[in-house]
């Protein structure tokens, strides 16, 4: 009984002290952070807004300002600044189109910006970040359910590069994206061919094995399909252990552990 009272007495005191120790640690960290003057005020919206007001007019500053509105969820202002940026600086059409595609999921606007960007240099598949504009255009079509148009655009991005330098120079995610559209249009053989090439470029990809499982399922090759899903499950767990946070191989082709598990489970049920 006495020991219990001692525990009750010590818990609040130790908590009190722990809180204080934590605070001093946090004070020292903030003190150290204060030795520098930051170029931007991340997560300090009001201070950052004042800083943005002082920036000179340039493509980078306009774009950054627009992106800030997107991050804050002020979509009305975001759209105003995104359009203003591209009107004044046409080379920004590419990155703005990518934002409409990836963040705002506004596919018609994304396509309009991709077309405007591509038109800047005729007869050339312009690059946005690491992707040709045709690939991003393919993703926008695919997201609208227009798989045939998507396959055309993906092929424009993949085939010339593969023919010129070899399939090993193609980003494996590009093969996966085309394979997804092949599966959606019931062309599993073509999908398997693309996934084969994708697997050679990254042989530990859960994403590749998952879609391989789906393509094999369309061909009624159940045993191989189950093996592919099990491989996907294995590599998903292995990659999760390697990476921190909510790791996603490809944001444009998300694959979830539950989805893989459900696929394995449904095959088990069919076997019974």
């Amino acid at each position: 009984m006495n020991g219990r009272w001692l525990v009750y007495l010590l818990i609040p005191l130790s908590g009190w002290a722990q809180d204080g120790e934590r605070f001093l640690q946090s004070f020292s960290s903030t003190l150290a952070a204060n030795r520098t003057v930051p170029p931007q005020f991340f997560f300090r919206e009001r201070r950052e807004r004042i800083r943005l007001d002082t920036l000179s007019a340039s493509a980078q500053n306009y774009r950054f300002r627009a992106f800030n509105y997107v991050w804050r969820g002020d979509y009305e202002q975001a759209m105003v600044w995104l359009e203003k940026t591209t009107a004044l600086y046409p080379k920004e059409h590419g990155i703005v189109g990518e934002l409409y595609l990836a963040q705002l999921r506004d596919y018609p606007r994304a396509l309009a910006h991709f077309d405007a960007y591509d038109a800047l240099t005729p007869n050339f598949d312009d690059i946005i970040g690491y992707n040709p504009v045709s690939y991003l255009r393919g993703l926008a079509y695919r997201s609208q359910g227009e798989h045939q148009k998507a396959i055309e655009q993906f092929s424009r991005a993949i085939d010339p590069l593969a023919e010129k330098h070899g399939a090993e120079w193609v980003n494996y995610k590009h093969f996966v994206s085309r394979a997804v559209s092949y599966i959606a249009t019931s062309q599993p053989d073509k999908a398997l061919a693309d996934l084969e090439k994708a697997g050679k470029n990254f042989n530990r990809s859960a994403l590749v094995y998952y879609h391989r499982g789906r393509a094999l399922l369309q061909l009624n090759r159940m045993a191989e399909s189950r093996t592919a899903f099990q491989d996907a499950s294995f590599f998903f767990k292995a990659l999760r252990a390697e990476r921190t946070g909510d790791y996603q191989e490809d944001d444009f082709n998300p694959v979830y552990e539950s989805e893989i598990d459900e696929s394995i489970q449904s095959l088990k049920i069919k076997d019974r």
């Binding site: 009190w16 204080g20 120790e21 001093l24 020292s28």
Partner: peptide
């Protein structure tokens, strides 16, 4: 010296 006013941590 760095410490807590309420003495909840060892003074550094």
């Amino acid at each position: 010296y760095l410490g807590m006013i309420d003495g909840s941590a060892q003074e550094q």
